[in-house]
Amino acid sequence: MSAGAALEPARDAGLQAERTALAWNRSAAALLIDALLLLRAGYLAESAPVLGLAVALLGMSSALIVLARRRRRQLLRADGPRLASRWAIGAMAASAVTACVGAIAAIGERVTQ
């Protein structure tokens, strides 16, 4: 064992799991806020497509909040964290894409008015 290896601190895997759990929660909360802002923009612009995207994003973000809580429990379990399922990552990605499409639609509605 070299002297350099003895000076390195032990790796704490618990902090990484906590940061990951917080990132899932932040992402779900950000999508919920985006859905509410999109809902407001659609209502004020009286735009059915924007309102439709907002309602879809609201449902997706609500499901992601539940998923984030479940993921947090998985990450902080005593037997160690598991990898996120493909559908969970896909759901988060689909929600982000829906949020982007909704924002573009809301901007497009505002420009055409």
Rank of each mutant, 00 (worst) to 15 (best):
A91Y: 02
A5K: 03
A6W: 10
G59W: 05
N25P: 04
A30Y: 05
P49S: 07
T112G: 06
R19F: 14
A3R: 07
A3P: 01
D34F: 02
L39S: 14
V111S: 07
V55T: 09
T112L: 13
A54N: 03
L37C: 12
A17V: 03
I33C: 05
A103D: 09
E18W: 11
L39Y: 10
V97R: 11
V101P: 00
P81E: 10
G4A: 15
R19M: 11
I33E: 10
A28I: 06
R69E: 11
I107R: 14
E109S: 12
A29Y: 09
G4M: 14
R72M: 08
A106H: 05
A88Q: 06
A21N: 07
A5V: 02
A91M: 09
L44W: 10
I89H: 06
A99W: 09
A41L: 07
I33A: 13
I104Q: 13
A21H: 03
R69K: 06
S27I: 06
R69N: 14
S85Q: 05
A29I: 12
A35G: 04
I107L: 15
I104S: 13
G52D: 15
W87G: 00
A10F: 13
R86Y: 05
A96Q: 14
D79H: 05
V50I: 06
A3M: 04
A54R: 00
T20K: 04
V97Y: 09
A91I: 02
L67H: 03
L31R: 00
S2C: 04
T112E: 14
G14E: 02
A103Y: 08
R86I: 04
L51E: 05
